[in-house]
Design a binder for these strands. Structure first.
Lengths: 116, 116
DNA sequence: GCGATATTTAACCAAAAAGTTATTTAACGA
DNA sequence: TCGTTAAATAACTTTTTGGTTAAATATCGC
């Protein structure tokens, strides 16, 4: 919960409900009730999730009568994309991919053996 | 704190200490003490951060005598990169960038007016 | 085997996250 | 103005996070 921008953005994205809300908003604006509909949780809970997204700058809210339509704001996602840049070279070379693939295979084998 | 992979990764990245550790590891493997050195916090605290990174699959740890060298693992970052894909079209067209820029200007004007 | 070094684990604490229910605010429509 | 609908806020609870200090574990060098 540090308050620098990147931490706030990552924290906001570290919840599947909030990511689902963002995904829904790629289809266009939606009201709070519409956003809440797919989830088995109370409206105040959704309201809190929206506040987290808003404070992170991932959504903006307008006003139309008693509705507060939400829309997606991608600036913070762009910042994450920029942050990732530094790490891309570690996977973009194809030999790195192969290497990772092999390590992954190995790791999965190990863990399934352990689980037995 | 949900336990799906994306949430775990985002949560791990939502802390500046942990991101600094990852950044350090782009320069190569490092021991726990080496990683701890720049921070004003106890070793156990760093150890906990490393455990969070390890559980997220962002680092792997080896053994050399009494040292546990850590190295970067980028697979989870790749997953974030993939997740971002869906949102890229919202900022990649140049008119979107201009649009965002104008909205931003507007918002800043509004909020400074409100603050007066 | 013993002392030193590197790291983890245990036990604890304060603050924050994520949910609840009940209440309040805001705006509509008749 | 009154009832209804949409949403936010208040007050509260439980769990998680991120830190602490003190103790335990593992491995080296001798």
């Amino acid at each position: 919960m540090p308050n620098d921008r990147l931490s706030t953005t990552f924290a906001a994205l570290a919840d599947p409900t909030r990511r689902a809300i963002l995904a829904r908003l790629t289809a266009g604006e939606a009201t709070v009730s519409e956003l809440a509909e797919p989830f088995e949780m109370s409206m105040p809970a959704v309201s809190k999730h929206l506040k987290v997204l808003e404070r992170a700058g991932l959504i903006e809210r307008g006003r139309q009568a008693q509705w507060r339509p939400c829309r997606l704001e991608t600036a913070p996602l762009r910042e994450i994309d920029d942050w990732l840049e530094r790490y891309r070279r570690f996977w973009e070379a194809s030999f790195d991919r192969l290497d990772a693939y092999l390590k992954n295979l190995q790791r999965e084998e190990n863990s399934s053996v352990r689980k037995k």
